[in-house]
Write a protein that binds this DNA or RNA. Structure first.
Lengths: 193, 193
DNA sequence: CGCGGGTTTGATGATGCTCAAGCCCGGTGG
DNA sequence: CCACCGGGCTTGAGCATCATCAAACCCGCG
């Protein structure tokens, strides 16, 4: 299976691309393997690209003033990740994007971005729907944080992404869910019994 | 100033529409005044429209199992609001959308939606960027909830939307920020001194 | 074998909630 | 025009949840 099939399958769920336009898109995408722990975006840099995850997992996080890492978002296969704020405004990012494991991505640089949307207007449909999905997902997360106890948040997440939980360190899951690793450990102890 | 100018001004910030296309868009939009406390979407209904707020304010909230109202989102002038999840999937919504004050909106029905995007493809650009903005805003909110104390969250919000705070009941602001009205009252007492 | 990152466990403590009562004030009916 | 009603805001006491700090432990890796 070639590197681009995942993305094209994904796009096909939402819109159609002629094969010329697929070729055009391919010509603007760069395939890359990101080794575990490598950063593709670092705090204070301007974010110059969007990343489509083929395999592996990326984390989007910030360093807080009290010196710890708050994860805001994971990007799993078939997800796009970027700091869109920085990407659009050219302002330095406050966030970091890092490979949690060895991760394969397709990279879309800003230098190709505008032109690509003009040449392949169908991508506007696709990204409109991606952004909408990302927006509703993050609204859902706000709801979970505000309405559910830490315990319910944890079970909810484990049910929603059963396989995922095995693959990432506990402390990242804890950060993402909004509590401490110690507290998560306590929760798990309670559940297992 | 006619009812559609606000929207067109907004669209012009992101893309261009020929005046024929503007007319086409107008023909699909319905202007309506929503009286304070009226609901445009109610829990268990399917969400059949998107709403563009011209003046006033809408709230997007859910009824939690312990019987209170959790506000997830306000829509102020120049914002679109909808339950996009329900809107796309035709599944019943878990949310309510209500006018906080007398509010003027433009309504875009789902029945016109697909066709409109085909006829006016520029709207894909516009909505892609709107959704992106909504997504980054809600990521920012997650960040505030997870990284900042209730007190800092409150000051941050008051600074970001100085006028807004005056116009809505305290208990709605408290719900939106993720704490109780009592606690907010206590915070304010502390600040004022 | 030892080091170091990650997880576990427990004691103590802060943040923000619950419950309950009183207050303020605008709207409504007598 | 006044009295009353009720929604929203305030205040306070007691309490639950989850954080912090610290120590021990586990285990993969050099």
């Amino acid at each position: 299976m070639n590197e681009y099939e995942n993305l094209f399958n994904h796009i096909r769920r939402f819109t159609e691309l002629s094969s010329e336009k697929e070729q055009l898109l391919i010509s603007k995408l760069k395939y890359k393997k990101i080794p575990k722990k490598d950063l593709v975006l670092q705090e204070f840099e301007v974010c110059n690209a969007c990343y489509f995850v083929i395999s592996g997992c990326m984390r989007f996080y910030r360093n807080t003033k009290d010196g710890f890492e708050q994860i805001l978002q994971f990007a799993i296969p078939m997800w796009w990740i970027s700091d869109y704020q920085s990407f659009e405004t050219l302002k330095p990012s406050e966030y970091n994007i890092q490979a949690v494991q060895d991760t394969e991505v397709l990279i879309l640089q800003r230098s190709d971005y505008e032109q690509l949307f003009r040449d392949v207007p169908e991508l506007n449909v696709y990204f409109r729907l991606m952004m909408q999905k990302a927006y509703t997902a993050s609204l859902k997360k706000i709801e979970l944080i505000l309405c559910e106890s830490a315990e319910d948040r944890y079970s909810h997440f484990v049910n929603a992404f059963p396989g995922f939980v095995q693959n990432i360190p506990q402390y990242m899951l804890a950060s993402f869910l909004g509590f401490t690793p110690q507290f998560l450990s306590m929760l798990r102890a309670k559940k297992d019994i």
